[in-house]
């Protein structure tokens, strides 16, 4: 598996990252190196070995269904660049 310039541009767009042309060209090489390194793992025979999902041997902890939060309005809006009438305010996004 390898990436080309087009793929790098596509990934950057999906991640909303602004990447200059020369950065993008450099990233093609870097990403391919990383991919090549990861692909080395494919040389091992992992038939019948379940994928490891965590380094800790435990199952999912669960929370009781209780409301633990007070009215959060001022806390969550405290760092918002813009707010009005209790809402976050952002530039217009319409379909």
């Amino acid at each position: 598996m390898s990436v080309d310039l087009g793929t790098v541009r596509h990934i950057a767009k999906l991640a909303r990252l602004h990447v200059e042309q020369e950065q993008a060209e450099a990233l093609v090489g870097e990403l391919n190196k990383i991919l090549g390194w990861v692909e080395q793992l494919g040389e091992l025979d992992t038939t019948g070995v379940p994928p490891m999902t965590s380094v800790v041997e435990r199952s999912q902890p669960l929370r009781e269904d209780v409301v633990t939060e007070e009215d959060s309005n001022s806390a969550v809006l405290a760092n918002a660049p813009d707010s009005a009438h209790g809402f976050f305010v952002v530039p217009k996004v319409v379909e």
């Binding site: 959060s72 309005n73 209790g86 809402f87």
Partner: peptide, 8 residues
């Protein structure tokens, strides 16, 4: 009320 039931 808006944003009154939002945890971090």
């Amino acid at each position: 009320a808006p944003n009154s039931q939002v945890s971090l």
